[in-house]
């Protein structure tokens, strides 16, 4: 991201938006002990569209939660936008997410009592940045690109599933975060809405230089990505680069 000026370690080839080393995560204890992640090493280069794939229960969501600072890994470290997440307390982590990470979830992305525009502004408002002129211009641009101009005053309940996801993408892009995480963003959509959302995500990578990491189990969806990482039983079993 061009607007991001965090100090980066000297990168060999490309700058890294996020990376993980020896990431482990387990849930429960004794009888109910589940190892969701069993040692994941991962580098996510900036300005690329990465898809994380794998069968159900393989640990995709868990990996994404750990990378995004939504959950604390049991062992291992995560670095996002050049900052190590371990050791941050909850408030620091929250502020970090607010400033550097964007999210699109499968469902329940929007707050029902806020209009589409209010939902898009929410993270920047929480950060107290909603009055910045540059953001206002960016807002207009994103809203127009995503075709939401007509829908800004509508509440989520008055929007279709595809429109809701577009609002969520607009929200994730507005603050120009270091990285955008999307967990099955097309899981609830029909194929044409899916295609629309996926091309919007790819467009944001191509045109805005955004870094996007998407969790999906649809092979179809993965074809939009630059890189694909396949997870099985908490380990990375395959990394491949899609035809760029």
């Amino acid at each position: 991201m061009t607007s991001l000026t965090s100090p980066q370690p000297p990168a060999p080839t490309v700058a890294l938006a996020a990376s993980a080393r020896g990431l482990m995560k387990s849930f429960g204890r004794d009888d109910t002990l589940v190892h969701a992640l069993r040692g994941v090493d991962l580098d996510l280069p900036a300005g690329r569209f990465t898809a994380i794939m794998g069968p159900s229960g393989s640990g995709k969501s868990t990996l994404m939660h750990c990378l995004a600072g939504l959950d604390q890994p049991t062992a291992g470290g995560v670095t996002v936008a050049g900052q190590a997440l371990e050791g941050m307390d909850d408030d620091t982590l929250t502020r970090f997410r607010r400033d550097h990470v964007g999210f699109v979830f499968q469902a329940f992305n929007l707050l029902p009592m806020l209009s589409a525009a209010q939902n898009i502004w929410l993270p920047t408002e929480l950060a107290g940045r909603d009055r910045e002129r540059s953001l206002r211009e960016r807002f207009d641009g994103i809203v127009e690109t995503l075709g939401l101009t007509e829908r800004l005053t509508h509440r989520p309940a008055e929007l279709s599933g595809g429109q809701q996801q577009r609002v969520a993408i607009a929200r994730a892009l507005l603050s120009a975060p270091a990285i955008v995480f999307a967990d099955e963003p097309t899981g609830n959509l029909d194929s044409s809405s899916s295609a629309e959302v996926l091309s919007l995500l790819r467009q944001s990578v191509r045109e805005l230089g955004q870094t996007v990491v998407m969790v999906t189990h649809e092979t179809e969806a993965a074809t939009y990505a630059d890189d694909v990482i396949v997870l099985a039983d908490g380990r990375i079993t395959e990394r491949r680069q899609a035809a760029a």
Binding site: D90, D91, T94, R95, L111, R171
Partner: peptide, 16 residues
Amino acid sequence: GREHALLRALGLTRRQ
């Protein structure tokens, strides 16, 4: 519950 989780993900601190 989910809404609060979403808000927390988007940057609302515990205190908020």
